[in-house]
Amino acid sequence: MLILLRPAAVLLLAVLVAAAPSAVLLGASLVPMIIVQLRGRESLRALGARNLPILLFSLVFTALTVVPGEGPLSSKGGEAAMTVLKIAGVYNVVFTGGRWTGRRRFAGVVGHIPIERLRVYLVLLQAVTERLLRNSTQIVRQISLRLSTSGAGRLAVARYYFQNMASKELASMRHLQAAAILRLHGVPGSSAEKPRPRGEELAAFFYALALWAFYLYGIIA
């Protein structure tokens, strides 16, 4: 069960970020992952680069919800800003939390799921997602080498990106499917040994629980 502590803490925090009605609670939910992030060695630049697409996405997304709205724009503006923050917040909690949790532990958590089909599904989903992310970086690199990425060039990049991504993804899934057919005789289990509990995951877990309690009992609005 200890193996579930870290992922549980991350999940609790991520859901809290999404549910948080106020900036205070939102900020408080981010604290543990900010600490984890600070202890890691990711440069500010890398952090920015990784957040740029998701910020752009959430800006476009929320702009769409604001524009056709009736009533004063100012009140809507505040809400929209919260939505942007929340989307970026959840993304970062999941991403940083995922790193903190680690590959083995992810596999360990999946290995605990008692339903065989779900386990196979999750393992394959993880494999496809990981390749999607890797393909994505490679494609962006290739395309930006070949096309100028300014002004109208960007539209072309976007078009080629999606085409390229889709065909790469199809090829990748075909290969992965072949590998799965050949290799999945058994049921994927976990390679993780019994983890030793560490202070940090207990702390993060109870911090998340406490925030939830505060939120539910209305102590922090």
Partner: peptide, 20 residues
């Protein structure tokens, strides 16, 4: 690179282990 299924190497080799 398409051969691998599990997120970690040890897990991936264990996946292939027999007998099941």
């Amino acid at each position: 690179e398409y051969q691998f299924i599990m997120p970690d190497l040890l897990g991936d080799v264990m996946l292939g282990c027999s007998p099941v």
